[in-house]
Every structure is written in C-alpha cells, then in structure tokens.
Computed example of a mutant assay.
Amino acid sequence: MNTGATARESYYERTGEHRFKPTAHAGGAWSTDEQHFSPLAGLVAHALDRHAADRPGGLVFGRISYDILGRIALDECEITVETVRPGRTIELLEATVTIGGRAVVRARAWLMASLDSSAVADSPHAPLPSPDTLPRWAMDAEWHGGYVSSIDVRRAPQSRRGRATAWLSSPLDLVAGEASGPLASYIALVDTANGIAVQQDPTVWMFPNLDLTIHLHRQPEGPWTGLDTTVTFGPTGQGLTSSVLHDVHGPVGQAEQILTVRPQPHR
C-alpha cells in the first residue's frame, strides 16, 4: 500500500552489523569509482558514536583523526571499532575501514569528560555570517561526483585563491533508515574543505588529502557545517588545508588536512 511517503535518499545502506554499501551519492570528486572521503568520515564517526553510546560515563568527542591509507573504492566496506584505552574521564577509540580485505582508513578518537566550564568559555574566532546571507555556490561546476552534487553550499565571495568561507548542508541521510547523531552528520561535511578554497585548477593539479584531523572545543549542532578555510601549497609537493569549524552558534573547533600536490597526468 502506498502511503504517499517518500523514502529519504542516503549516502550508505547498511548490509550487516558492521558493513555498509555506498550509494552513488558517495561518489568521489577525483574519480567516479571512488568514495568521497567526507561522507565516509561521517560514517566512521557514526560507528564511533554508536560504540561510545554503549559505554557508561557520558564522555564527549574531543578529537578524531583519520589516516587515509589508500584508494577508497566505491564498494561495500566494513567498519570495526575497538577501545584502545578505556577510562572514566578520557577514553581512546580506534576504527578501521576495510574494503576487499584491505584496510583503507584508520581513525582514532579521544573522548573526554564533559564538565561545566561555561564561566570561562571564550574564543578569538568571530562567528561566521549566517548561511541565509551567503549566495549558493554551484560547487558541481568545478568538481564532479555524486557527493558534490548532493550538497547545498553557500560561499562568500573569495578575496583570493586559497581562502574561502562557506556553509554546507545535505538533505540526505548518512545511513538509510538510521538516525545519525549531530556529530556524525556534522563531520560528514568537513572533508569538503579541501574543495572550497582551491589554490589551483583541479583539472591541471591534483591535491588529494592523506588525512583529516578534527579538534573540538564544543560539540557541534546541525544542520549547517561552517568552514573558514585556508589552503597553502608548499614548494616541494606538500600542501595544507586548515579550517576553523563553525556551527550557527559560533566556532566549534579546527580541522587540518595534509595534501599531496602534483600535476594531473597527461591524457
């Protein structure tokens, strides 16, 4: 019987207790047969979040660091999570993403006790302009892939290459039929930073990131992920994408991505 309800689209479908199949919306920007790392980072955060929820203590995430070990094919993946260092006030988790029997991502997350420090809360970073005040940016005019086509990007006019301020949101679920916490939904958009403030034309130069490290001083709230991003290219093939992270209430932390900068191969 058709009730008239329309199923929401998603980046992944669960195929087992720890297994997930990417949809076309998870397609990468550098190659259509690869996953974009942004939704996968959110999926890993989702797995870490669920693992942490089963443990007592009420700890919150202070850092998640991802190492990208190789090509991430647009294929079914398995995510396993273990507790490396249990504790009542701090805890360290590790997640491994495996595709075709090969580890492609390893992530470590520090969880910390949540205490009331509101009396001294402060940041030198000013809040970003509201998403409603910034124009939509057709990111898919410069980048390709299912993920880029799925997101809503509001970007301020750039003052120079390598600098951008943007807000991102997505109408898609992270995992079909599953509620994701605000942290996983927020992180699922952070890796996009490397594509919003490009230094060079991506059809001429490649600059994929090898990692993503996120530090948080406050737990983010959705539905918008704010990025105040700076991209630097060095003279010997390395680059760095640095972002101050925001939600609509103000800054929440910082993200860093190390880049491998090289010319696109001749075709």
Score class of each variant (00 low, 15 high):
A7K: 10
R8Q: 14
R8P: 10
E9S: 13
E9L: 12
S10I: 05
S10D: 04
R14S: 11
T15I: 08
T15C: 05
G16C: 07
E17C: 01
F20A: 00
F20V: 03
P22D: 05
P22V: 00
T23I: 01
A24M: 03
H25Q: 06
A26S: 10
A26I: 00
A29F: 04
A29M: 02
S31E: 12
D33W: 03
D33A: 01
E34H: 12
Q35G: 01
H36R: 02
F37W: 08
S38F: 01
S38P: 01
S38E: 07
L43I: 00
H46F: 13
H46L: 10
A47P: 02
R50A: 14
R50K: 12
H51Y: 05
A53K: 09
R55E: 14
G58F: 09
V60Y: 04
G62M: 07
G62T: 07
S65Q: 14
Y66K: 04
E76R: 07
C77E: 14
C77W: 08
E78G: 10
I79E: 08
V81E: 11
V84G: 09
R85I: 10
R85M: 11
P86K: 08
G87K: 11
R88N: 14
L92Y: 08
L93E: 12
E94A: 13
E94R: 15
A95C: 08
T98L: 03
I99G: 02
R102E: 15
V104E: 07
V104C: 06
R108K: 12
R108F: 07
A109D: 09
W110E: 10
M112A: 14
S114R: 15
L115N: 15
L115T: 15
S117T: 15
A119R: 12
V120G: 04
D122M: 09
D122I: 07
D122Q: 14
P124M: 09
P124G: 10
A126G: 06
A126F: 06
T133V: 09
W137E: 06
A138K: 13
D140Q: 13
W143F: 09
G145N: 06
D152H: 01
S159R: 06
R161F: 04
G162T: 00
T165S: 03
W167Q: 01
P171V: 08
D173V: 03
D173M: 10
V175N: 08
V175M: 06
E178N: 07
S180N: 05
S180R: 05
S180G: 12
G181L: 02
A184M: 07
S185K: 11
D191V: 03
I196M: 01
A197Q: 02
V198A: 12
V198G: 02
D201P: 00
M206I: 01
F207K: 04
L210Q: 13
T213M: 08
I214Y: 06
H215V: 04
H215D: 15
P220Y: 04
G222F: 02
G226V: 00
G226T: 00
T232Y: 09
F233K: 02
G234W: 07
T236M: 13
G237Y: 08
G237L: 04
G239S: 06
T241I: 07
T241A: 15
T241S: 14
S242W: 10
S243N: 06
V248A: 13
V248R: 15
G250H: 04
V252G: 04
E256Q: 14
Q257T: 07
P265W: 02
